[in-house]
Amino acid sequence: MSGQHEAEWGGEVAPGDEHKVDSGASAGVRGYLIGFALSSLLTAASFGIVGTTLIWAPGIPVALAVFAVAQMGVHLVFFLHVSSGPDNTNNILALAFGVMVVAIVISGSLWIMYHLNQNMMPMNTITDLHLQH
């Protein structure tokens, strides 16, 4: 009975499940090694690009952001085993919702606070008003 139960749910994958069905532990080790190599490379690129004159200086933060997003993707795929397979639909949907909320919180905060800053009276004007009393 329980065997049949497992078979019916055989297609479901919990977040972070190891891919062990087909190829055993060596494939798992290979996955982690690929992930580790890729993220080491991206980390080294991030730390290397700071302070270089290799690229246009205002472009450095953009490059850093690209490296960071790429590395988060590498971690998700190779360490947390998030995939685009049909068995991962629920995990992906939850993650996509989380990413949406994170994007709204961060970009919304920056957007609003930038405009509030624009509407503030400049600091030296406030000081002048205090001095007039």
Binding site: W9, E12, A14, P15, N90, A94, G98, V102
Partner: peptide
Amino acid sequence: APKRVVVGYGFWIFLISDFV
């Protein structure tokens, strides 16, 4: 669903709320 899937999914939701 087996407990393995339920527990993992619940913890996944917690992690995402931690990201938020």
